[in-house]
């Protein structure tokens, strides 16, 4: 409990310091609860998610950093490894490959990397996974692009 608090506080300070260094990630701690964080990440360039801003919700367990934080997309996203309804993310480092050396910031980076490199073989979103697995890159990209426009980009006008 204390350890996780100290660690999260350290990460908070780290985030404040690195704000400028990583413009793609905005990590914000809940005002009243240091175990709740939200992050805004920019969709990586040259992907269907480019130009979108995606919101992530972090729920940090008390055993953190020995246990991974629970992360999910709040913004709807069409991605083979993200559950379309719940926003749950299928990412090894959030499950069995978690290491206490990771930070919330590095988790964000990993998620950005996952957005750029989907893993259609372990899909949470079967539609998206099937499109990719059947080789319909264009279909996947247009779907992802559409949902990114709908959900992750500021409405024009």
């Amino acid at each position: 409990m204390q350890a996780s608090r100290a660690r999260l506080f350290k990460e908070y300070k780290e985030v404040q310091r690195e704000k400028v260094a990583d413009p793609d990630i905005q990590l914000v701690c809940d005002d009243s609860n240091i175990f709740k964080w939200t992050a805004l990440i920019k969709g990586p360039s040259e992907t269907p998610y480019e130009g979108g801003i995606f919101q992530l919700a972090f729920a940090v367990p008390e055993q953190y950093p020995l246990q991974p934080p629970q992360v999910r997309f709040l913004t709807k996203i069409f991605h083979p490894n993200v559950h379309f309804k719940t926003g749950e993310i299928c990412l090894d480092i959030l499950k069995n490959a978690w290491s206490p050396a990771w930070t919330l910031q590095s988790v964000c980076r990993a998620i950005i990397a996952l957005m750029a490199h989907p893993e259609p073989d372990s899909p949470l979103n079967c539609d998206s996974g099937n499109l990719l697995r059947s080789g319909d890159i264009r279909g996947y990209q247009s779907m992802a692009r559409m949902y990114a426009r709908l959900a992750a980009m500021p409405k024009k006008g």
């Binding site: 350890a3 100290a6 660690r7 506080f9 350290k10 950093p65 020995l66 206490p100 050396a101």
Partner: peptide, 8 residues
């Protein structure tokens, strides 16, 4: 330096 896990 401090422990990277618990920051103590």
């Amino acid at each position: 330096t401090s422990c990277p896990i618990c920051c103590e």
